[in-house]
Design a protein around this nucleic acid. Sequence first.
DNA 1: TATTGTTATACTCTATAACTATA
DNA 2: TATAGTTATAGAGTATAACAATA
Lengths: 143, 143
Amino acid sequence: MNETVEEAELATSLVALSHHVLQLFSCAGRAHKLTQQQVELMCAVIVRGRVRMTDLGKLMVLEKSSLSNLVDRLERRGLAVRTRDPDDRRATWVELTSEGTELAMRTHREVTARLDGLINRLPSKDQRRLSAVVRTLMAEENP
Amino acid sequence: MNETVEEAELATSLVALSHHVLQLFSCAGRAHKLTQQQVELMCAVIVRGRVRMTDLGKLMVLEKSSLSNLVDRLERRGLAVRTRDPDDRRATWVELTSEGTELAMRTHREVTARLDGLINRLPSKDQRRLSAVVRTLMAEENP
DNA sequence: TATTGTTATACTCTATAACTATA
DNA sequence: TATAGTTATAGAGTATAACAATA
């Protein structure tokens, strides 16, 4: 009974935290006229160097057409480019232009800075615990 | 140095967890042809009974026009209604119709069930710890 | 004048279905 | 035939600016 109440409370605050975390991407992008989705895509690409459309779609849980549109808009703004894979000519790699890379790095830094600001409210012992707990929660999610 | 690596890893997995949590709203809605935003709005309203537009906008971090559109679509589907506040005739309350309430309760149950499924991967000791930690992270966010 | 909401407008985001090109 | 992407279409989500009504 008391268990249930705690469970519900944890659920509620987890949702609030999730919103807060993803809101950071919106905020970081706003100054550069980037949407949350654009920031997320660019961050996803920059930490990987280049990504294939299919993999990026799975990563971001998007239909291929949705992703295609997203990449279109970034390409039109000169922030990303597509290149054909010479070994499998069906496949397309997405990477950032130098302008896109610079913008992505700045935005990525802003996001992680705010995220670290959040994380650093916790003593490092709790940080390690949280890290382990979150890993447990996400384990076997993508088997 | 090692601290930084752990911090970055925690940041990354927090973002992944956030996506996963909010994705639950999408999934729960899909079966009922509801979008993530619609599910979130309905859940926000149902746990409060009725909410004023302004408050709902702050809650969901949305411009008033965006919220107005969102409510429009739910109203058009017969899931929500607006009522004028007789004491302050500028203000509008949003509440769910009986059909909306039923759908919201079902969807809310689905979301919380999946969320509980996630949470229950943790021993209850860790659940209590996580609960405390998340509260710390979110404290003083809305002072 | 300030607050509450809606409307008009212009994008962005998203999915489904149909398509092209390659394997 | 199956896979990787794009295009066409339609609708949903969002913000800015201008507006109406009320306080």
